[in-house]
């Protein structure tokens, strides 16, 4: 294999990391507030609001139902509006965020649901405001579970980003598609797939290791 291809793969790795990391960050910036809204407006939340809860839930479900490849194409005008182009790594970030944010919102919602209702009640009894409960109790107590969600979100977005290679996205997915699929360079395709497998493995294992260190509920005397 020539140096050109190796250089290409390194570049693909860098692009993939760029897309996936930035997308994960934005997906969380949108997903955390949505997840918090879903949690606190739920029946057993600290601010029940049925209509808002159903409305947000409905929008999230709709976006999550659309297959990623369709979504990718459907929002091209929006992508152009935000990124100025529809081709390349930066442009791919837009659909990745749109697809991942609702998914992240659901994971945040379920992480927050794990926080013991008694602890929230105790916080209320101490005179906490809703904001203080959200920051200091819900999000703080759910930290380990949120981090597990983060690892899952990162690897899922990594999978989506590879798909974006079909419609002009960048990164390892684009290399696999352009060289492996269109030009029948099976070796290049196998290498990119192997690299993706390694990235997922490393992130999954390292992520879970860090989460376990983070969680204070596990008895370590």
């Amino acid at each position: 294999m020539n140096e050109q291809i190796i250089g290409l793969i390194w570049q693909g790795i860098a692009e993939t990391f760029y897309m996936v990391t930035v997308s994960t960050v934005f997906a969380y910036l949108i997903g955390i507030p949505l997840g918090v809204i879903l949690n606190i407006t739920g029946t057993n939340g600290i601010r029940p609001a049925r209509a808002l809860n159903l409305a947000v839930g409905f929008i999230i479900n709709v976006i999550r139902s659309v297959p990623f490849l369709i979504l990718l194409v459907a929002i091209l005008p929006f992508t152009r509006l935000i990124a100025g182009t529809t081709i390349g790594s930066t442009a791919t970030i837009v659909p990745l965020v749109v697809a991942a944010a609702p998914f992240v919102a659901r994971m945040v919602e379920s992480s927050l649901k794990e926080v013991d209702a008694g602890v929230i009640e105790a916080a209320k009894a101490m005179g906490s405001s809703d904001w203080q409960i959200i920051w200091k109790v819900l999000l703080a107590e759910a930290r380990p579970s949120l981090a597990v969600g983060g690892v899952i979100a990162f690897t899922t977005i990594l999978g989506y980003s590879a798909m974006a290679g079909f419609v002009g996205g960048g990164g390892l997915g684009a290399i696999a598609v352009n060289y492996g699929y269109y030009r029948y360079k099976t070796d290049v395709m196998l290498i990119t797939v192997a690299v993706l497998v390694i990235i997922v493995q490393v992130f999954q294992e390292a992520g879970i290791y860090i989460v376990n260190r983070l969680d204070k509920r596990i008895n370590k005397s």
């Binding site: 013991d116 109790v137 703080a140 969680d215 204070k216 509920r217």
Partner: peptide
């Protein structure tokens, strides 16, 4: 409370 309700991560 009966179940103490401490913040487990603190």
């Amino acid at each position: 409370f009966q179940q103490f309700n401490l913040l487990e991560q603190r």
